[in-house]
Write a protein that binds this DNA or RNA. Structure first.
Lengths: 336, 336
DNA sequence: ATGAAAGCGCTAACAG
DNA sequence: CTGTTAGCGCTTTCAT
């Protein structure tokens, strides 16, 4: 038993009226008589009529769609952001097309192209780790397609930005370690091109300075994934005897280093305290549970979508780039 | 400095030729002279022309887009599936629109509707936990839009299906526990409406029978998330003294139960061995690391996309529903 | 109260 | 070798 997809023209033909009447009847235009309306609506209902959004978008030059480019869907922080974005977008009749860059600038570029091709009304981006050149985004802005950056932002483009207070987050968790009497640190950092990494590093340095410790005395390794930790284990173990605390730029490297240390006879936190960043669900599951910084992913996603949709709805209005900073909060557990 | 999006008509006007000539030149139609081609292509390049896929799709009645409905993007198994689907789809010039049902049948229905509205060429679905009625999918099939179910499948619809060998996976991990001398089991099961849960339970029962143990002697609780375990902790702890092994239907409930037992003085695996299902990355990170069953998410995704695209490319060809079963493999770690 | 026509961007049949 | 025309599904003047 086959059914088929009816268009307005199909309905018009079946009912022996014109397409424009059908169109008007369907949207309760006052000119149309009640009986015609009923006739059309009943029939539309019966054949399960659904407007073709392609035709709608082609005509209106609006797709009511947001494009989202995200490094990796699998991370809890990012999937919370996605949920936040979707919540706000759906609530305002926008759809979201999700693209993963897989932390690859080339893929990011392809995604961006595809989103433009699909005529999305606006774009949300968290840059990939190896994105150093933001020119492709500038071209999009020149087409008057608004962009909002979140978390992994660029500071060279005049766009709205939504970020965590990375500086304060890093500073407060570092102070927490200092309050616990720790003085000799290893910091696991991200590559330098991400502002986020720079800010977390600065917050860490500031905390040390606050305690009259020379930041230059801290060990710093560029190491921000579980794989990095495994790759650099010899180096880390060589440093381990000189330190009493590790502050990692994210929870995954924090947990990996914690386990590496445990396997090599260190007790956490007695010998070495370990702190992460992000409050991934896994942080509360590992042993010992991980002290970390909560990032408000869902709210950040919602706010990003809000800013973007506001621009889309007011294309002519000149709005200066806005920066929304979300406070992070310290989650103290048993690893410190 | 503003730029704008050029259409074929814009180009035609600028170059004083017809739109069809531009269209043909752009796709290297043999009729067009080399000089015209060069003229058009150079100009198109210069203004960064990109075809409007909405117009293309409207005309061709093909969107080259797959719709994907998935319970939760955040789970590693599902995000692997997504990656597999994307890999095959992109490699064959298809895009993927991802929708999350958040384990909610109502949302699943809305997603399905939205995908149809966008005229996707085919749909991939893993059903939500509370999906009991599959009629909405039947209506889609009646519109001749192909559907492929994966992992959380329905067996009442004549569609292609891609699943893990849940029965054998559960049987082999249960046998492993039996080989380790375990005899008194608790099984944490899913709600009955998912075939997957039924099959894992059957595999478990079969293993017991293989060892002349009455399956009815095993404890069974309906409990398939971390939250469920926490909610049912009293019940579980009451059972704990009678058992020497737990087989959980997924890694999250396995890990939660493992930690609950540890907190209450049990040693894993000495007092009670614990096994999960799925091989989530977290399984290798918890202490002790979790014995589990590997599901080949990426390959399952790729195969699902392959089956779907094959149907899309051969709309007239009558193909009987196919069922692809992926072998699962036992991952033995330290919890058993 | 309804219909005819034009156009969003694109392509293909048909015509020269 | 290139142009004209029509149509994908829809809305919106402008007629009637």
């Amino acid at each position: 038993m086959k059914s088929r997809i009816f268009s307005i023209n199909d309905i018009a033909r079946e009912l022996n009226i014109s397409a424009s009447t059908v169109s008007r009847a369907l949207k309760d235009h006052p000119d149309i008589s009640e009986e015609t309306k009923k006739l059309v609506k009943d029939f539309a209902q019966k054949v399960n009529y659904r407007p073709n959004v392609l035709a709608l978008s082609l005509r209106s030059r609006r797709t009511n769609t947001l494009g989202l480019i995200i490094p990796e869907i699998a991370h809890h922080f990012f999937s919370s952001i996605v949920s936040g974005i979707e919540e706000f977008a759906y609530g305002n009749s926008f759809r979201v097309i999700i693209c993963q860059s897989n932390e690859d600038q080339a893929r990011e570029f392809i995604n961006l192209q595809a989103l433009i091709d699909h005529r999305v009304d606006g774009i949300l981006v968290s840059a990939s780790k190896n994105t150093v050149n933001f020119e492709h985004f500038r071209k999009v802005l020149e087409k008057e397609i608004p962009i909002v950056f979140f978390d992994r932002i660029s500071d060279e483009l005049p766009t709205d930005r939504v970020i965590t207070d990375d500086f304060e987050g890093a500073r407060s968790i570092s102070r927490h370690l200092l309050e616990k009497g720790r003085r000799k640190f290893l910091h696991l950092a991200t590559p330098k091109n991400l502002l986020l990494g720079k800010d977390r590093y600065r917050g860490f340095q500031q905390a040390l300075s606050d305690y009259q410790i020379n930041p230059a005395d801290a060990y710093v390794l560029q190491c921000d994934t579980r794989q990095d930790v495994i790759r650099m284990k010899d180096q880390i173990l060589r440093i381990a005897p000189q330190i009493d605390a590790v502050f990692a730029v994210n929870d995954f490297s924090a947990i990996a280093v914690m386990q590496l240390l445990q396997e090599n006879g260190y007790t956490i936190p007695d010998d070495i305290a370990v702190a992460g960043f992000g409050n991934d669900p896994i942080a509360s599951i590992v042993y010992p549970s991980l002290t970390t910084v909560e990032q408000r992913g869902f709210e950040m996603g919602r706010e990003s979508a809000r800013l973007l949709i506001e621009r889309i709805e007011n294309p002519s209005k000149m709005i200066y780039p806005r920066i929304k900073v979300f406070e992070s909060s310290l989650i103290i557990r048993n690893s410190t």
